[in-house]
Amino acid sequence: MSIQHFRVALIPFFAAFCLPVFAHPETLVKVKDAEDQLGARVGYIELDLNSGKILESFRPEERFPMMSTFKVLLCGAVLSRVDAGQEQLGRRIHYSQNDLVEYSPVTEKHLTDGMTVRELCSAAITMSDNTAANLLLTTIGGPKELTAFLHNMGDHVTRLDRWEPELNEAIPNDERDTTMPAAMATTLRKLLTGELLTLASRQQLIDWMEADKVAGPLLRSALPAGWFIADKSGAGERGSRGIIAALGPDGKPSRIVVIYTTGSQATMDERNRQIAEIGASLIKHW
C-alpha cells in the first residue's frame, strides 16, 4: 500500500482519535458579512469528516447552483462504474471539434489522439474542462443518470439537468442544476469515506481534487503551510461562485467545507476574496 493510499485508508482512524471539535460562531459572522459585502445569498456548511456531524452552517438547506462543483460527483459516478466493471479508466475516447464547448483548455489539445477516461476526469476536476465533463456525462448516460446515481446514494436534493455550459445559467428560483450545502457536503463525505467506492477509487477521487489547479484564489489562499486540501470550485452566471473541499491540518483532511453564493453584482475577484476570507476565519478558529 502506498503512503497516499495509507493516508486515505486511515482518515477515519486518525479522526477518531482527534480531540473533540467545537464550532466557532466567528466564522458564521464572516459568512454573514460576506453576504453584506456581496449583496447576495451565501450558503455555508462545515462537517466533521469522521462523524458527519454538522459543526457550523448557514442557509444549509437553500438551493444554490452547483456550477462546476458537480464534476466531482460526476467522476465519482464514473469511478463507481469502474468498480462495477462497467468502465475502464484506460479506455480512450475520441471526439471532434464539434464536441468542444466553451472553456476546454485540455480537451482542445487532444482532438487528434483523444483522451482516456482517467485523463478526462483529471481534466474535468483539476482544470474544470467543460468538454471533458460533457464527454464523461455521455459515458454514464447524461445528466439524468448522474441525478439517479445521487438518488441511489441517498441524495434526493442534488440534481443535474443540463450539460456544460448551460448548467451554469443560475436563474433565480430555478431548481435545475442545483444542490443544497448540506446535501453536497453529505454526498461528498460519502464519496470520500464511505463504502460506495473502493479504496482505490476513493484515493483516485481525492487525488484529482488535491491536484486542483484553478481554485488557488479561494480556500487555498488562506491555508497555512502543512495543511491538506482537496477541492473543486465552480463559477456561473449572475454572480455565482462555489467551492467544495476536504481539508485539515497535519497533512490530512478532517472536515468537509461547502460554500456557495449566487445573485451578486460583485466582480469575480471580490467573490473570490470573500470566500478566501471565510476560509481564513475557519482556519483561525479551527
Rank of each mutant, 00 (worst) to 15 (best):
D99V: 09
D48Y: 01
L146R: 05
A230C: 13
A225E: 10
E145Y: 15
E119M: 06
M184N: 07
G263Y: 02
N130Y: 09
W208D: 09
M115G: 04
G251K: 15
T126L: 13
D161R: 01
G279N: 08
K144W: 02
W227L: 05
E119K: 01
T139P: 03
E166I: 06
A123M: 04
I244P: 09
L55P: 06
D129T: 02
D177N: 00
V42G: 09
E62P: 08
N173R: 10
M180A: 12
R255M: 07
W163G: 08
V29L: 13
C75M: 00
E102L: 00
V117I: 09
L49H: 01
G263L: 04
Y95Q: 14
I140Q: 03
T126W: 03
G236Q: 00
P60N: 01
P181S: 03
R118K: 13
M127N: 10
L191A: 12
H24Y: 10
S80N: 11
H151P: 02
V72M: 01
K284E: 03
I54A: 05
A246S: 11
R255T: 14
A148L: 06
D177G: 00
G248Y: 04
M115F: 12
R271P: 14
K232L: 12
R241P: 11
P249L: 10
E169M: 05
S104L: 04
A34G: 03
L247A: 10
K32R: 09
G142W: 01
L120F: 07
I125T: 07
L150D: 02
S264F: 03
E87N: 09
L191W: 00
L188T: 13
P249N: 01
A133H: 05
T186W: 13
L160M: 03
T267M: 12
A77K: 07
Q97H: 01
R238Q: 05
I125Y: 04
R273N: 11
E119G: 02
L197S: 09
R220A: 10
L160C: 00
Y260I: 11
S51Y: 06
M127F: 09
L247I: 11
S281C: 01
D99S: 09
T178F: 14
V258G: 06
S122W: 11
D33G: 12
H285G: 01
K284F: 09
V72T: 10
A77D: 05
V214A: 15
R176I: 03
L196Y: 07
D113N: 06
M153P: 02
G142N: 02
S51A: 06
V72N: 11
S201E: 01
R271Q: 13
A211N: 13
K53Q: 10
M180L: 10
S281P: 11
I259L: 12
K144S: 02
G39W: 03
H156T: 11
T186N: 12
I256P: 10
A222E: 14
A211G: 08
V101E: 14
W227E: 08
A132K: 00
A276S: 11
T138G: 12
G194W: 02
A200G: 06
A222H: 15
A225C: 08
Q203R: 05
T178H: 13
G236H: 11
I45H: 12
R176P: 08
L150C: 07
T198G: 06
L137S: 01
A183S: 01
T126G: 12
E166P: 05
I275T: 08
L196V: 05
V117L: 11
S122I: 12
F70S: 09
R271K: 11
G251P: 10
V258C: 13
H110G: 00
D113R: 07
I54Y: 13
I259Q: 13
A246D: 10
T138Y: 12
P25N: 04
P60V: 02
P65W: 05
D129E: 02
R59L: 05
I256V: 10
T131Y: 09
K109Y: 07
R255I: 15
L197E: 11
A132H: 00
L89S: 04
G239M: 00
E35A: 01
G251Y: 04
Q88I: 11
L196R: 10
D99T: 10
T198E: 10
D269L: 09
L89E: 02
L191S: 14
Y44R: 03
E169H: 00
L196S: 10
K53M: 13
S96K: 08
A245Q: 08
E164Q: 01
K71W: 13
V106Q: 09
I93K: 02
T186P: 08
P249D: 08
V31M: 13
F149W: 11
G216Y: 15
V78C: 01
A170D: 11
T187V: 08
A276E: 15
K30E: 15
V101M: 08
T126C: 03
A77N: 11
L191M: 03
G216T: 14
A245T: 09
L196E: 07
N98R: 08
A215E: 15
L111D: 08
V157S: 13
A280E: 09
L167S: 02
I229M: 13
I229L: 15
T178K: 14
G234A: 14
R59K: 04
A124K: 02
N152K: 11
L219P: 13
P224T: 08
L197R: 00
H110S: 02
R81M: 08
V101G: 12
M67C: 00
R189M: 07
M66H: 04
L223R: 10
E164H: 00
D231H: 13
L137C: 01
R41W: 14
A123K: 14
L167E: 01
L136H: 03
V214F: 15
E169R: 00
Q88K: 10
L191K: 10
P224M: 15
T138I: 06
D83W: 12
T198C: 06
H24F: 08
P25G: 04
H110C: 01
E175W: 06
L79V: 02
T198H: 05
I206Y: 15
E61T: 03
P105W: 03
I45Y: 12
A215K: 15
S57V: 02
L188S: 15
P224R: 05
K144D: 01
P181W: 00
G239Q: 02
R63G: 08
E108S: 09
R92C: 11
K109S: 08
W227Q: 09
Q37W: 11
G263C: 00
F70K: 00
S233N: 14
D129F: 02
G194K: 00
H94R: 10
I125S: 07
